[in-house]
């Protein structure tokens, strides 16, 4: 399991003080350029290769081939559906939990926080190992068919999104005065359903969207769990592609990078929007 973090919303940063000495600025440039080189080179190399599928010319042949591959789009769409389902499942579980823990059962907070951290503690390969042992044979036989395995997969994806989702929603709840808003709404005669739907959700939109996008970025190309549960999703497909083809994997890597970038960019964008409000 890879731990990941969404980009922090643009901080106002510390007050700008007297400019640092020239020497330290030189070092900053050096550090930045060295690290930037390390990060940019693989992208450049991959992009370069992705343009070379046709002999003698630079072009988008690799991308065309990738999208024309009979297995690509089904795997891609299956992964998207899985990700979306996992996000909704996760939201459905985490939002009431975070709300309850903030408002009504604060004593449970440490327990809930601990459990949401479990996906960091249990590596994906160990988790899937346990899943196979737990659900691979009666009495809890859930991995017998492709479809039922897929259900388990979506559920596990929802579970591994807990750390991000809970933290995101929890931060969102802390940023607003949940108790005050709830009591005000109750005072005006609103029931619990109305409060959640009309008061809490709209105020949490940014937090929910960030959590959802981050989950999407993590789950869409997930390999380990899908692989051992024999699912034909994007992760195993990409692994197979990397093993068997020459140029398509480069196009695939660029596409995957673009998807991640889009998700993270959107998170940065919406949290900045929010800041300006």
């Amino acid at each position: 399991m890879t731990i990941s973090t969404a980009p922090a919303p643009l901080a106002a940063g510390p007050p700008v003080s007297a400019a640092p000495a020239r020497g330290s600025r030189l070092w900053s440039w050096l550090a930045f350029l060295v690290v930037a080189l390390y990060f940019v080179l693989p992208l450049v190399a991959t992009f370069y290769w992705s343009l070379r599928a046709e002999k003698g010319v630079l072009g988008f042949e690799a991308y065309r081939k990738l999208f024309a591959d009979a297995n690509f789009l089904p795997a891609f769409s299956e992964s998207i559906v899985n990700a979306v389902l996992a996000i909704f499942l996760s939201l459905l579980i985490i939002v009431p939990t975070a709300y309850w823990v903030t408002l009504r059962l604060p004593g449970l907070r440490p327990v809930v926080e601990f459990i949401t951290l479990l996906p960091f503690v249990i590596p994906a390969v160990v988790l899937v190992f346990g899943l196979i042992r737990l659900y691979g044979r009666p009495p809890l036989l859930l991995t017998a068919t492709y479809g039922s395995s897929r259900v388990v997969l979506v559920c596990v994806y929802a579970a591994i999104s807990f750390p991000y989702m809970f933290r995101s929603v929890d931060n969102g709840l802390r940023a607003m005065d949940v108790r005050g808003l709830t009591e005000a709404a109750q005072g005006l005669g609103a029931g619990w359903g109305t409060i959640l739907r009309k008061v809490i959700f709209p105020n949490l939109r940014v937090a929910l969207l960030s959590g959802a996008l981050l989950t999407f970025a993590i789950v869409i190309g997930e390999l380990t769990i899908a692989l051992f549960m024999a699912q034909h999703t994007l992760g195993p497909y990409m692994a197979e592609l990397t093993r068997s083809k020459v140029y398509e994997p480069s196009a695939m890597a660029i596409v995957a990078f673009a998807i991640t970038w889009a998700a993270m960019g959107m998170i940065a964008y919406i949290s900045r929007e929010r800041k300006q409000m």
Binding site: T2, T5, E222, M238, T242
Partner: peptide, 15 residues
Amino acid sequence: SGVASNFAGVPLAAA
């Protein structure tokens, strides 16, 4: 950094 920290797995290996 947000992108790269999430850019693990197959695409990273390929790159």
